[in-house]
Computed example of a mutant assay.
Amino acid sequence: MCGRYTLTITWEELLMYYELEEGPSVACHQPRYNIAPGQTAPAIIHDGEKRKAGPLRWGLIPSWAKDDKMGWRTLNARAETLLEKPAFRQPFQRKRCLIPADSFYEWKLASDGKKQPLRIVPADGGLFSMAGLYDTWRNEHGEKMSTFTIVTTTPNRTMEQVHDRMPVILGPEEASTWLDRSVVEVDKLQRLLKPCPSEWLEMYPVDPKVGNVKHDSPECITAISDPPLLF
Rank of each mutant, 00 (worst) to 15 (best):
Q190G: 01
N212K: 15
A101S: 13
E84N: 12
H141K: 14
L230T: 03
L109K: 07
M159E: 02
T147N: 05
H141C: 02
G48F: 00
R157N: 00
G132Q: 11
G54Y: 05
G54A: 09
I9K: 05
Y18S: 11
E106N: 10
V213Q: 15
G211F: 09
L75V: 15
C220G: 01
L83P: 09
Q190A: 00
I61W: 00
P208K: 09
F231C: 12
P228G: 04
T147E: 01
P197Y: 11
M16A: 05
D67Y: 05
L179P: 02
G71C: 02
M16I: 03
L230E: 03
K115Q: 08
I99D: 08
Y134H: 12
R119W: 01
P31S: 01
C220D: 02
L170H: 00
T10K: 05
H29N: 09
I99S: 14
Y134K: 06
R78D: 08
P172H: 13
N212S: 01
P91L: 09
W178S: 01
L127W: 14
R165T: 09
V213A: 04
P195N: 03
E19H: 05
Y5R: 12
M16P: 10
A41L: 13
A36Q: 04
T136R: 12
D216M: 14
K194H: 12
Y134T: 12
V186A: 06
S198Q: 06
F92Y: 15
P195Y: 01
D135R: 12
F231Y: 12
T147A: 02
L201S: 06
T158S: 07
R78A: 07
G23C: 08
E173A: 11
F128I: 01
Q161Y: 08
T222L: 13
W64F: 14
Q39W: 12
R89W: 07
A43C: 11
R96S: 02
T149Y: 12
E219C: 13
L109D: 07
K115G: 11
C220I: 07
V210L: 01
L229M: 06
W58S: 00
C2G: 09
V183M: 14
I150R: 03
D226F: 14
E199H: 15
P91K: 00
K108L: 14
L229P: 04
V206D: 14
E21R: 05
I221W: 08
H29G: 05
G23S: 11
Y105Q: 01
I221A: 12
P55T: 04
D68R: 06
P172G: 08
Y134G: 03
Y134S: 02
W58A: 06
G126K: 04
R57C: 06
H215Y: 13
V210K: 04
T136Q: 11
P205D: 09
T222P: 00
P37L: 10
D135C: 08
E199Q: 15
D47S: 11
V184A: 15
L201C: 05
T10H: 08
L230C: 00
G113H: 14
M159T: 01
T136N: 13
H215S: 14
R96F: 10
M16L: 02
L127N: 13
Q161H: 10
T149F: 13
E22L: 06
R51C: 06
A77Y: 02
L75I: 15
N212C: 07
A79E: 06
F148M: 11
L7C: 03
L201R: 03
I224E: 04
P195E: 00
L192Q: 00
M203I: 02
L15I: 01
G71A: 06
L127D: 10
C28D: 08
